[in-house]
Structures are given as C-alpha cells and as structure tokens.
C-alpha cells in the first residue's frame, strides 16, 4: 500500500500504542522511582511521582548490604553459565550425530528427543527432587545445574541447524584431517553460531528467571539465585521496606534488561524460539 495513512489514523495509532506502552512500562518506572525515594515518601497516601529527596545511595546500599545480593547475582551467573555450557557440550555432539551420521537407533533417539520436548520441567520435579536427594545433592549448585544439563530443545535446535550444513563440508574436513570431535567443535559449531547465540539467550534468560526449581531444592541462602534471594528479602521482617526492595529488584533485572536493550533483535529471536519448537 503506497497510500499514506491519514494524519488522524497516525495520531490514533500513536495514542493507542503509547497508552499501551505506558501500562507496559509502568511497573518498571514505578520500581525505579520507588527505589529512589525515602520511606516517608513511599508510605504516604499522597500520589507523588518524582522523589522529593533522593534516596538513591541509601536504598541501593541497603539492598546490597542487608542481603548478600552480590552473592546471589554471582550464584545466578555461575548457575546459568554452567547450565548453558553443559547443555552445549552435551547437545552439540548428539545434534551432529542426529543430523549427519548414519547409525542404528538414530530414529528412536530422535523420536525420544521429540517426546521429551513435550515434558514441562515442573511435571518431573518430584522425581528430580528424589534423584537429588538420592545423590545427596540437595541444597547445592549440583542440584540447580544437573537436571538442566540436558536440553532437548537445544538438541532439536542445533540438529535442525546442522541439517542445513552441506555434507561436503564434513567430507572436506575429514579429508583435511580433522578428527570427528574436531569436526563437531571446530567445523560444525562455528557454522552454527547464530543458532547457538539464540539458544544461549533462551537458556540463560530461562534459568536466570527460574524460580520453581531453586525454590524446591534450596534451603541455605548460600546458593540462592537472584529471584529466590529477592523473595526472601521481601519475606524478611524488614522486607516491607519498599525502597531497598525495589532497589534490589532493579539490580536483579538490570543485567538481562540491559543486555536486551543492547541486542533487541537477537533477544527477541532467542526467546520466541521457545515457542517455535
């Protein structure tokens, strides 16, 4: 349509989308503003948007010192990164085998992968818990990481991508003297970089935000991931102190939201992948 929409329509479009955007952004804005306010401005029955007194330093210092927030963030990073590395190192070889090698049982294996794609993690949380209990891993990094070390979604995604790599490339690598493991990691993986990045974003976002599983297996704050730490902060007696609480929430969402704003397209791709499987 080359026809330019009328001015009225363009105004209407922005008006509607802008009000929608305001609702979308409102919790974020309110979170930020509250994290900058002193308690007496928060607990007031007057509607004030902008803080009268800036309480930035106090609230954020409070958030970082009252609870070991930095440790929680570090836990979050350790857990998500380890999960991602495990998932890649297990998924990539099998994805290569499923896409490019001929072996007995391949069809069965792929059918199993497709079946496992249907299983929501909550549905197997009871046996997982029993397994962790059996292994003596409850309340540890192992419990947070081990059940997610296998990602059938990652296998599926990488396999789909590897299917598009021409066989000739693998033949060339074999003739050039690459070992099969070198083919997997040095030839196949570099060609699949876009898929790997999308999968990485998907995996890291999912596990950074995960609450259900850490809630089940963790007791001691030593291993708390950011969401768990945040909820515990709120549940504390002092947790009704909204300023520091909002400051903590801001700190928890900042890494991902910041990364998202820097690389929007990749993030949107990566996360909508989960729906595309």
């Amino acid at each position: 349509m080359n026809r330019r929409p009328s001015l009225l329509f363009r105004l209407f479009r922005h008006l509607v989308l802008m009000s929608g955007a305001m609702i979308m952004l409102m919790p974020f804005i309110w979170m930020l503003l509250t994290s900058l306010k002193p308690p007496d401005e928060i607990f007031t029955s007057e509607l004030t948007l902008w803080p009268q007194h800036w309480y930035f330093v106090e609230n954020y210092t409070e958030a970082l010192t009252r609870i070991p927030l930095m440790k929680f963030l570090l836990n979050g990073i350790v857990v998500t990164v380890t999960i991602f590395l495990c998932q890649v190192s297990i998924a990539v070889p099998v994805a290569y085998a499923l896409a490019k090698l001929r072996f007995k049982g391949k069809k069965t294996l792929f059918a199993a992968v497709l079946f496992c794609l249907l299983i929501p993690p909550q549905a197997v949380s009871i046996p997982w818990y029993l397994l962790m209990y059996q292994f003596g891993w409850l309340d540890s990094y192992m419990a947070l990481i081990a059940p997610f070390s296998i990602s059938v979604f990652g296998i599926f995604l990488m396999r789909q991508f590897f299917m598009t790599v021409p066989n000739d490339l693998i033949y060339a690598a074999r003739i050039d003297g690459f070992s099969e493991l070198a083919i997997v990691w040095k030839v196949m993986l570099p060609t699949a970089m876009p898929a790997l990045v999308s999968f990485g974003i998907f995996s890291i976002v999912a596990h950074w935000n995960d609450y259900f599983w850490p809630l089940i297996v963790l007791n001691s704050p030593d291993y708390y991931t950011p969401p768990l730490g945040l909820v515990n902060f709120r549940n504390d007696d002092t947790g009704n102190d909204y300023g520091p609480l909002m400051a903590a929430a801001t700190i928890v969402i900042t890494p991902l939201v910041g990364a998202f704003l820097l690389a929007q397209k990749r993030f949107i791709e990566g996360i909508t992948f989960s729906g595309m499987k």
């Binding site: 033949y171 060339a172 074999r174 003739i175």
Partner: peptide, 29 residues
Amino acid sequence: RPKDRNLSMVFQSYALYPHLTVKENIATP
C-alpha cells in the same frame, strides 16, 4: 581413513570453512 589416503578433494559446493579466511582455509590441510 580418508585423511590417511593422501588424496585431495574439491566439492561441488566448494565446502570452504565459512568461519576461516581464505588463507586459513588453504592452510588447513
């Protein structure tokens, strides 16, 4: 195994390593 037969092969799709430069591609074998 293929690499021990001391043969070179040129493919229809060229099969160049997409992440390596021309120089690295040629040097790989």
